[in-house]
Every structure is written in structure tokens, then in C-alpha cells.
């Protein structure tokens, strides 16, 4: 099996789904000739032509808004937003329409739309190129939110996202695009949405993480007996896998790049408080970013959880 990076894996997923299903179209800024600013869509224009791979005006609201109309009409649009922060303009289209179309029409219309966007720190870009606002989307009923952590699951999850009957926000950790390689089957395959994976088995602490922070948690876990869960689908998250692990270890540490206040960690911690309190030996710990604006490159490594901060949380968890 070939070892490839996440950019190549996502590219394969897009190409193979476009091959399989003529209704799948790709649209965004610079996704055609340029192959996307991260080259994720490279080669798709030549292969599938400008009717299915569309370089659009700089217009995020309409990218998603048109995506809703296309999806209602029967296409399966995959919209690329160049960087997560620029999806903010399209939030109304996602929140007020994409997520609600099925319910509002009581099932007559659906919205099989994928919004892909690179997210998180790690590319040393200008301001607003390092956001991790996944919790905004997780708060919305009627949507799925997915974050891959390896080339393998990036491909399998994206294929599942494209085949899903409803809207999916697919967040690609920019830092992982080219920094890791893994074995990825050449043909199409799926990794199911809504399922987490036990990335590393262990007995003492359940660690819940996704995307870039999964790898940082693994790095920090040396010397601890951690069971590390790669959440992968943030909404709806896999309650069963999380619960089973915490019942076994009795300790839980949640690590995410986003700010702690109302981050997804809050939902996970509340869930554990409701469902697993009798199994917990001590408080659930969240390692996350401060309630502050994402800094530019010079300070970003202080902002997001470091291996040191994660280790400290493990030490504290082990006091109980």
C-alpha cells in the first residue's frame, strides 16, 4: 500500500467520488486551475472539466448558499472555503438553511452538501488563518462535523461525508496536510461518520482528542498509560466509545486546540458528568486554549495546548 499525505488522500477521495457519482461537483476559490491554495483539488479540473470543478468569485456566502440550492436540486456539491475564518460569512446559510432544509420541508428537500475547509494553527499565515471554531458548527442541529487526523481516515471520512444524506462540515487540520504520511488503500473506502476510534489503548487515563491535538496527546502520553480516543466525528460524537473507555480508566482528559470556554470539551465533560460520574475517580480535565483571540505565528505555540500542558493534566488526573 502506498504511503501518502493528507493532501493526496483528500484529493483521491474527491476524484474517486466524482468518478463514481456524476452529481458530485467541486467549487471554491482557486480550486480549478490552481488546484486550491493547498493543492488539495489539483488535477480535478483537467479530469472532470469546468462544469464540475468550478473556480468561483470570492463569495463565501454564495458558495454555501448556491451549494444549498444545488443540493436541493439533486447535486452533491463539495464547497471549499479557503480558510475556516472565511466561512463565518456563510454561517447564516449553514445555520438557517443547510441544516434546516430537511426539517423545514418535513423531508421533501434535503441538503447533501459538504463544506471543506482547512483549520487550526500551523501554517504561519496572516491573521484569521488559524481558527478552530468547530464548536460553532457542533452547536447546530442537523449537521455533522468531521475532523480527520490521518491521511487514511481523511480519505475514508471524506468519502462518507460526500455520500451522507445531509450537510457535513469537514475540517482539515492544515498542520497535518503534509506533515504525516500513512498507508492508504488506492481504491475508494469509507470510514463511518459518528464513530470514534481507539487510537492507542491504555488503562489509566482516557484522552479525547482530534485533528492536530491527537498527535500532540500521543506525544505527551509517554510515561502514562493513556487510552487515546480519536473522536473524528465531533457531531454527533461517538458516546459509546467515549463512555466505554472512561468506565474502564476512571479518568478523562480532553484536549482541543479551540478556546476552552464553550468549546466542544464542555459538551464532552458535561456528558461524562451525566453519564459516567460514578466511574470517575477525579474531575474531568480540559486542556484547551485561553479565552483569547488566536494569536499570530509568534505566539501560537503558547496559545494551543503544548505537550507540557497536556502532561501536567495527566499528572493531575493521576493524583486521584
Amino acid at each position: 500500500m502506498a504511503k501518502i499525505n493528507m493532501v493526496a488522500a483528500i484529493n483521491q477521495a474527491l476524484a474517486q467520488e466524482m468518478e463514481r457519482d456524476g452529481d458530485v461537483v467541486v467549487m471554491g476559490e482557486d480550486v480549478g486551475k490552481d488546484g486550491g491554495v493547498f493543492r488539495v483539488t489539483e488535477g480535478l479540473l483537467d479530469r472532470f472539466g469546468p462544469e464540475r470543478v468550478m473556480d468561483t468569485p470570492l463569495s463565501e456566502l454564495a458558495l454555501v448558499g448556491c451549494g444549498v440550492g444545488m443540493a436541493a436540486y439533486g447535486l452533491k456539491p463539495v464547497v471549499e472555503i479557503q480558510f475556516m475564518a472565511f466561512a463565518y460569512e456563510a454561517i447564516e446559510q449553514i445555520y438557517s438553511h443547510a441544516t434546516r432544509l430537511r426539517a423545514r420541508s418535513r423531508g421533501r428537500f434535503t441538503c447533501p452538501l459538504v463544506v471543506r475547509t482547512p483549520y487550526g494553527i500551523g501554517i504561519k499565515g496572516p491573521e484569521l488563518h488559524s481558527e478552530s471554531s468547530e464548536a460553532l458548527f457542533c452547536h447546530m442541529p442537523g449537521i455533522k462535523v468531521v475532523v480527520p487526523s490521518t491521511p487514511y481516515n481523511a480519505k475514508g471520512l471524506l468519502i462518507s461525508a460526500i455520500r451522507d444524506a445531509g450537510p457535513v462540515v469537514f475540517l482539515e487540520p492544515a498542520r497535518l496536510y503534509r506533515s504525516i504520511k500513512s498507508e492508504v488503500p488506492e481504491g475508494p473506502f469509507t470510514v463511518p461518520l459518528g464513530r470514534a476510534e481507539v487510537f492507542q489503548e491504555g488503562k489509566s487515563i482516557t484522552v479525547i482528542a482530534w485533528g492536530t491535538m491527537l498527535h500532540r496527546a500521543v506525544e505527551a502520553s509517554e510515561g502514562f498509560d493513556c487510552e487515546i480516543i480519536d473522536l473524528m466525528t465531533l457531531k454527533p460524537f461517538d458516546e459509546e466509545t467515549v463512555l466505554n473507555s472512561v468506565k474502564k480508566t476512571g479518568r478523562a482528559v480532553i484536549v482541543h486546540e479551540a478556546t476552552r470556554y464553550c468549546g466542544l470539551g464542555a459538551e464532552l465533560a458535561a456528558f461524562l458528568a451525566e453519564e459516567a460520574i460514578m466511574h470517575l475517580k477525579g474531575p474531568v480535565k480540559r486542556v484547551a486554549s485561553p479565552d483569547a483571540v488566536v494569536p499570530m505565528a509568534a505566539l501560537e505555540d503558547y496559545y494551543v495546548p503544548t505537550a507540557g500542558r497536556i502532561r501536567k493534566a495527566f499528572e493531575e488526573a493521576m493524583k486521584y
Partner: peptide
């Protein structure tokens, strides 16, 4: 907010 939806459906009609 329905204006871009119409553009999108028109686009889908064109593609199809």
C-alpha cells in the same frame, strides 16, 4: 437568504 439558493438550483439545472 433564498436568493443564492435560486442561483444554485439554476446552476444545477445548467450542469445537468
Amino acid at each position: 437568504t433564498q436568493i443564492p439558493h435560486a442561483a444554485g438550483a439554476a446552476w444545477a439545472m445548467k450542469i445537468k
